[in-house]
C-alpha cells in the first residue's frame, strides 16, 4: 500500500509538470500577412491625337482589404466619345508601408497573368492589347482603347491569375483559365 502511494505521487509530479510546459504566448500576435492582397487599382487613360496629352486616372481603393471599412474610392470611368486612348493599369498593395507595387510583380510573372477589359455594351469601348509576355501571349498592363459613340455602361476589369497547375501551363491568352485576383465593375460614361 505504501509503495503504490509513492507511485501515485511520482505521477502527480509528472502531471503537474505538464501544466508548466507553455513556452510561447498567444498574446504575441504576428501581423497579418496576406500575400495576394491588392488594395488599389488605377486606370490611367492618355488620349491620343488631341494635342493635350493629359492623363486621366480612375481609381478603386480599399486600403484595409476585404471587408472592414468600405472602399474609399471607386471612380466612374468618364471618357470622350470616338477617341483613341493609351490605357495603363497600376496595381498596388497600400496596406503595407511602403506600398507594394503589384504591377511590377505582375510584369515579372507575365506568363501567369492576363488583364481583361470587358465593356457592356461592347460598342462603348474597344480594347487592343499593347504588350505581351515571354510566350507572345497578351498581358494587358498597357493597351489601346477606342471609345464609341456617347453612352453609359459598365467596364469590367479583371486580373486573371493563371499560374501553372500541377506543372502544366495554364495561360493560353484567353480569360478562361485561372481565377480572378481583380474583378471590378467600373461605371463607364462615354460623352
Amino acid at each position: 500500500m505504501k509503495r503504490t502511494n509513492q507511485n501515485w505521487n511520482y505521477g502527480l509530479i509528472i502531471g503537474v509538470a505538464f501544466l508548466f510546459m507553455q513556452c510561447k504566448s498567444a498574446s504575441d500576435v504576428t501581423p497579418d500577412d496576406e500575400n495576394e492582397l491588392i488594395t488599389t487599382v488605377q486606370l490611367n487613360f492618355t488620349p491620343e491625337n488631341t494635342g493635350f496629352p493629359t492623363v486621366q486616372t480612375f481609381t478603386y481603393r480599399d486600403v484595409d482589404g476585404d471587408g472592414g471599412n468600405a472602399p474609399t474610392k471607386f471612380d466612374t470611368v468618364s471618357l470622350q466619345a470616338n477617341t483613341n486612348y493609351t490605357l495603363k493599369i497600376t496595381l498596388l498593395d497600400e496596406s503595407k508601408n511602403p506600398a507594394v507595387d503589384i504591377t511590377q510583380e505582375v510584369k515579372e510573372k507575365s506568363d501567369e497573368h492576363l488583364v481583361v477589359f470587358t465593356a457592356s455594351p461592347a460598342s462603348l469601348f474597344k480594347y487592343t492589347y499593347g504588350d505581351t509576355d515571354a510566350s507572345n501571349l497578351p498581358l494587358g498592363l498597357t493597351g489601346m482603347v477606342l471609345t464609341g459613340t456617347a453612352g453609359t455602361g459598365k467596364l469590367k476589369v479583371q486580373l486573371r491569375h493563371q499560374p501553372p497547375i500541377s506543372g502544366k501551363v495554364q495561360k493560353d491568352g484567353t480569360p478562361g483559365p485561372g481565377s480572378d485576383d481583380v474583378n471590378l465593375d467600373f461605371v463607364l460614361m462615354v460623352k
Partner: peptide, 9 residues
Amino acid sequence: PILTVRGAF
C-alpha cells in the same frame, strides 16, 4: 453584398 477588389460577394 460586400464589395471587394475581386467584386461583390
